[in-house]
Design a protein around this nucleic acid. Structure first.
Lengths: 221, 221
DNA sequence: TGTCAATTGTCAGTGCCTGCCATAATCTCG
DNA sequence: CGAGATTATGGCAGGCACTGACAATTGACA
């Protein structure tokens, strides 16, 4: 699970058993997302997913703690990519700039990582489904909270401050992720959402973070 | 549901039927929170809550869409108090200052509103339970998202900008609420949390919003 | 090949939640 | 006050998510 600097770590074959498990997990994920896309989240039972993946219902629950989790499975991938993007920023970059640039870099690197499991279009459809399904949105926001912790820890490491006593990493990450969520929600409400649109929205919103916090807006229009 | 300027609206008795419903709802809430406090959220069944409130299980689900909702029932009260606090801020106050001051004012006004339903201590215990129960935390975060929309709308109204085209209200609210959540989480992790401690944390964190966003932290320590 | 550990399937059971219909309580109006 | 309309409630059947226990199967490893 640890992200390692080198590149020659990918194909360290972990035994037949482990590969089979990974394959089952991916199959389960793909079948679930396809069924969700076709007949909705609530309209799909765990039994159907299990049958489509040719395993028992009990096995499904050995791979995913609950039905929500399979819908959010790919979010884990996204988080890994985003965290790696932040770690790849040069150390001398100021914290806010590093966060912004990492956000930009994430969109490019994400595609291939997702395609390894499901078609990108299916994943985009899933994202919209999550946003419009209360139960899934709730679970997603909770996971996001944990992810923010990891981001804050990385910021603290970069800047050499102590996360336990210095609240600035948490404050920064909280502000940024709040803005990112606002941007993605506005984007989600547009029916004609393009990926470039999202990138533009995020850029604009992050740029507004400073100005929006200072003084009255009426004197500046 | 509309907030009305006048004050003589409180005691407009809404008929026996309506009062009885409100009483049943409060009873259900109180019984549920007490049971949760005594034997945990997962350790309490809906049947137990219904029995304690002397209604059928079916009736419980007519008042609350699901088990989560009764645990979060008082959050609705808090949101109403907070929104009122924001609306009470003088119009000439800049947006960020209005948000901060409203947050401060909320803590004072909240107590009595809560006490009308359950003892304040029980409510505080419930807050900690929500924070430590994944399912409840998730639901709470989702509700918070809706609440942020209402706050952003109020900010937009105050400043006379259009929420649909000007993202600054959302950006401001997102940043503030992110910081508030970070503060309350840090507070929640301290076992010896005092209410004054929370107030102090929120003040500090909001004050850091500006500085944490600018440049590198290493040159200023 | 044989033994051990991990993975899976089957089954039974609990709890959350919903639709349906009958009953009882409240409201309305003559 | 009383009959009819409206609304809240209770009971029941059933679907679905999820879990524990045990047996059967499969890959790992000597």
């Amino acid at each position: 699970m640890q992200a390692i600097d080198g590149v020659a770590e990918r194909e360290a074959l972990p035994g037949l058993r482990e590969r089979k498990k990974q394959r089952t997990r991916n199959t389960l994920t793909r079948c679930a997302l396809e069924l969700f896309a076709r007949q909705g989240y609530d309209g799909t039972t765990v039994d159907e997913i299990a049958e489509a993946a040719d395993v028992s219902q009990r096995t499904f629950f050995r791979y995913f703690a609950n039905k929500e989790e399979v819908a959010l499975a790919l979010q884990e991938v996204e988080e890994a990519v985003a965290l790696a993007a932040l770690q790849a920023r040069p150390p001398e970059e100021p914290p806010l700039a590093a966060m912004c640039n990492a956000a930009m870099a994430t969109w490019d690197a994400m595609g291939p990582a997702i395609e390894a499991v499901v078609p990108l279009e299916l994943h985009l459809h899933t994202q919209r489904m999550i946003e419009s399904t209360p139960q899934l949105l709730a679970a997603r926001l909770r996971r996001l909270g944990h992810f923010e912790d990891r981001l804050a820890a990385e910021i603290a490491r970069r800047e050499g401050v102590d996360l336990a006593t210095d609240p600035r990493p948490r404050v920064l990450v909280a502000a940024c992720s709040g803005v990112l969520r606002a941007a993605s929600r506005v984007w989600g409400e547009r029916a004609d959402g393009d990926l470039d649109d999202l990138l533009r929205l995020v850029t604009d919103y992050l740029g507004l973070l400073g100005p929006a916090l200072t003084g009255s807006w009426r004197n500046r229009t």
